[in-house]
Design a protein around this nucleic acid. Structure first.
Lengths: 357, 357
DNA sequence: TTGTATGCGTTATCAT
DNA sequence: ATGATAACGCATACAA
């Protein structure tokens, strides 16, 4: 293993292509071909080179290769914030399926920002504009944008997931939040509920907006209006789902006429709400029906098991990754601007008929 | 913005240092200096160059830079498997704090694997040996190792976190699992419990082994022996924590003499166990006391709120990152082989005095 | 202080 | 089918 002498600094390097070439007794360019286009080299020399490479434990330098060919194999994932979405696990689940698709095609996953502060934003843009990255999957309603640079202008293929960014011309893979919530709320109405508490996510957040629209749709379906719903929350981010639920329970406590059903934008809120409301001797679902959203893994082990809406997270992740990969291998192909995969209501014991007055 | 003509393929490139140099009317090397060592260039030219760079929206090519200086700013994280550790969120929490420390120092976080299959292992090793990566943080008891290559031999600084790999000479940041579990079990003994069900993690897993040792320590402290504990589980990975809890509840059902306290290696197991056992009309803590481990965010909203052990995850992540960064900036510095940050027992309503017989 | 020239490790073009 | 050589974009030793 020849050491390269002029290494400016840092850890010592491993064997180079030149070392393999020397050992195999061929030119560097032949080694390059043998490794990349095995078909365009004599089988005998190919074997010889492969043996040499193996013996030396040669691993190609990815950066040199990327620099030369003008593209890398790194896919950047831009997250909306923390991975710690309480119990919901939506983001980790999404990452899981994305990663699987990427890695099987030889790509590498770079997590760009778990926080959403300025230093992280700048970081994202440097990566995007700095040539290190081949494409981007974004899970956020806002594109990183700072100092006149926007992620959209980095010349990289972008796909969005979970958030509908199609209006910004970014191909998006989403679920039918609105319709799913409409159906779920419909179930409550069918059970006789006429008065609701809606526990909201962050004000203006895409999911909160869509899901609340679904609630209103259902109200209209049932001949009701927004008058029938009281909103709570809207001040904190999804990362603080439990806290939102706690505050909603306090709000509920203040209400003079109590709703008979509670609809949370997300499971964490519902879970914390139930916990607090039960401490005040409210029974679920006898006194109060409650539904969440996301079908957090823990939701079926709650007391009572939480009715919720299951998103096809893995399918969305896989499709988003698939779309990006196809676009990368065929720049002429246009990713569908919007793909919608359906969610499903999962009925559990947290809802029941409205209490007879 | 001059287009570079010979781009082999792919997305069009942005402005280069040469473009900035041309616009500013200086040599490329001067631009390089102005951007990297602002001190070693005339202030006037520096301003001129900065203006030109800004106007063109210049972002340095990270790969070219890395190739030239022989080191990258990418830190690779090797995970034990899925991010979806049920509700515990330990891994995501760790990632969060690591990322924060890294990004503030100009480093980038690369998630090497979300699964732990062969293709991922190979991927990890290619990254490590391929020069793309500067250092590694591993959260796993097993070093990627395949085809004669081991992550340990990549010539990269490695730090471990959550898992004690100090016996393999890898600097590790861990918590005192054993002692923490000893204290928690001691609490149960102090409450009068003499007969236990231990819900085990994966057989041979570092955390399971350590924590169980702590249980045994406590038994001895109290003049008891392993005879006083029945083990359940040990067949599934932590990713299936809920499933382990379900099966433990079934095991419990079969026992002729019932333990009065249950100790789970991890919260998910405890949560699922409680859910199932309550369905069979067991009351917690009146009939049965239960503790978990990790203090999952959701644990305080369980019914009843779950007693558990809180690990200083963020502190561990920060320290691991800090150690790695210090090592990178000072190769002569030796990272402490083992750092132990203490966990703390959090007492909640899931435990109580043993029922009078 | 600034410019010139060389090389990082690889791929691709062009001869042979 | 293979080899010599020039680039990819940047940083640095050295010369001016």
């Amino acid at each position: 293993m020849k050491k390269n002498k002029n290494l400016p600094t840092g850890e010592s390097g491993g064997p180079l292509m030149a070392d393999v070439a020397a050992l195999a007794g061929v030119a560097i360019s032949t080694v390059s071909r043998a490794l990349a286009n095995p078909g365009r080299v004599n089988e005998k020399t190919r074997v010889k080179i492969a043996a040499a490479a193996d013996k030396l434990g040669y691993t190609p330098n990815a950066m040199a290769r990327s620099l030369r060919i003008g593209k890398s194999d790194i896919i950047m994932i831009v997250l909306p914030g923390s991975l710690q979405y309480g119990a919901s696990q939506i983001i980790p689940q999404a990452l899981q399926s994305i990663n699987q698709a990427l890695i099987q095609n030889g790509y590498t996953l770079l997590i760009a920002n778990l926080d959403r502060d300025e230093i992280s934003e700048r970081h994202v843009l440097n990566l995007a504009f700095g040539g290190s990255v081949r494409g981007t999957i974004i899970l956020s309603s806002e594109l990183p944008e700072i100092g006149g640079r926007s992620l959209a202008d980095a010349g990289l293929p972008i796909v969005s997931m979970l958030f509908d960014l199609s209006s910004a011309s970014i191909p998006s893979v989403v679920t039918n939040d609105r319709q799913a919530m409409r159906e779920a709320t419909g179930e409550l109405i069918a059970l006789g509920h006429r008065s609701f508490l809606y526990i909201a996510g962050p004000a203006g957040n895409y999911h909160d907006v869509e899901r609340y629209k679904g609630v209103v749709d259902a109200l209209h379906d049932g001949g009701l209006t927004e008058q029938n719903v009281v909103r709570s929350g809207g001040r904190l981010s999804y990362q603080r789902g439990f806290q939102i639920g706690i505050e909603a329970a306090e709000d509920f406590d203040q209400l003079t006429t109590k709703p008979t059903a509670v609809i949370a934008t997300e499971d964490d809120m519902a879970i914390a709400f139930i916990s607090r409301i039960r401490e005040k001797s409210w029974r679920v679902p006898e006194d109060l029906s409650i539904i969440g959203f996301d079908c957090a893994p823990v939701s079926e082990f709650c007391e009572p098991p939480l009715s919720s809406i299951r998103q096809p997270v893995e399918e969305m992740g896989a499709l988003a990754a698939e779309n990006l990969l196809r676009r990368l291998s065929d720049p002429a192909w246009n990713i569908p601007l919007k793909s919608v995969l359906p969610s499903a209501f999962v009925k559990r014991r947290s809802i029941g008929p409205v209490k007879a007055a």
